[in-house]
């Protein structure tokens, strides 16, 4: 991976055997991760003949076809679910960030009146969870059933992210904030013009945590949304997988007109995975300096 010259001088050069062992280990792990992914991708691009020939799992499509993707996007259900998922993710992440930043900044100031009890209330949600039924009843009493707000409001502030952000804010030197105050800045402009620009890394990480949570939101949608027209992608994917389980081997007659069931399922899987996959690499570099700098000092 690294050339010997890139190694610090006090380190020994790795032995040949060690390098080989490491390379094999990494290759095995890589294969374990990539194999299912490749299979899903290849199956989504295959036609029925190929899928039944290889027993349901294709590794390399010999005649790649986009028929499965055309079918699911023509149906309209997946397209709408995709917009629902994107909308919930975008608005949910924005709302969560707003609430978490405001709360974390307030709680990070040592002269905050009543800060301690508020923090303890937030921390208590990490300690104790009453379970599914009470949550459901609260959402029901709030009249949020069957609304997109039910996917956002109950998980608006995650206590873990709140603590990460608060600890990061607390590590910003008090002198910096005092200097801004001497220059005449109010709390809001201190937060927006001084604290937030200093916290870009941790903000990116927290936003990513929220976004992934909203994108993958499955159980909340299953609980609160009985109207299938409002389903996000994860629930539509589940419906596709469930509805096609008993039909194995019964599609020979129309094998070449309709795209195969497996292909459609895998195409939906790909659509659900790809956005996260596209975002992760760009935000990952913030991870090292982002989370831990905030979390180490309790």
């Amino acid at each position: 991976m690294t050339a010997p010259t890139a190694r610090p001088s006090w380190m020994e050069r790795p032995s040949l055997a060690g390098t080989i062992v490491k390379a094999v280990a990494i290759a095995v792990i890589l294969a374990l991760v990539l194999y299912p992914f490749l299979t899903v991708l290849a199956t989504s691009l295959s036609d029925q003949g190929e899928i039944s020939k290889s027993g349901g799992l294709v590794l390399w499509p010999s005649h790649p076809t986009l028929a499965a993707y055309r079918t699911i996007f023509a149906g309209g259900v997946v397209t709408r679910a995709l917009f629902v998922s994107i909308g919930v993710t975008v608005f949910g992440t924005a709302a969560s960030m707003l609430a978490t930043i405001a709360m974390a900044y307030g709680l990070s100031r040592r002269d905050m009146i009543g800060g301690r009890p508020i923090l303890l209330v937030a921390l208590f949600t990490m300690l104790f969870n009453a379970g599914i039924i009470p949550n459901f009843l609260v959402v029901k009493q709030l009249g949020l059933l069957n609304s997109y707000a039910s996917l956002v409001v109950p998980v608006l502030v995650s206590a873990f992210n709140l603590v990460v952000l608060r600890n990061f804010f607390m590590n910003i030197p008090q002198e910096l904030i005092d200097s801004a105050r001497i220059d005449g800045a109010g709390e809001l402009s201190i937060l927006i013009r001084l604290v937030l620009p200093l916290s870009k890394a941790v903000l990116a990480v927290v936003a990513l945590f929220y976004a992934v949570e909203y994108w993958n939101s499955f159980f909340h949608a299953l609980l609160y949304l009985s109207d299938t027209g409002k389903w996000p992608l994860s629930l539509v994917l589940r419906a596709y997988v469930l509805q096609s389980q008993p039909t194995a081997g019964s599609t020979d007659a129309m094998a070449n007109q309709l795209p195969p069931q497996e292909g459609i399922q895998m195409a939906v899987v790909i659509i659900a995975i790809v956005p996260i996959l596209l975002v992760y690499p760009f935000l990952q570099r913030y991870f090292t300096k982002g989370v831990l700098t905030g979390a180490v000092k309790g």
């Binding site: 104790f128 969870n129 009453a130 379970g131 599914i132 039924i133 459901f136 009843l137 609980l223």
Partner: peptide, 27 residues
């Protein structure tokens, strides 16, 4: 269990108790 008996079948009491016990054990 909580999902199928509570949310689907409407047995709120027992399911809520199961959830509560689970939460208490976690705590």
């Amino acid at each position: 269990y909580v999902y199928f008996h509570g949310i689907i079948d409407g047995a709120w009491g027992p399911s809520a108790a199961v959830g509560l016990v689970k939460g208490l054990i976690g705590t």
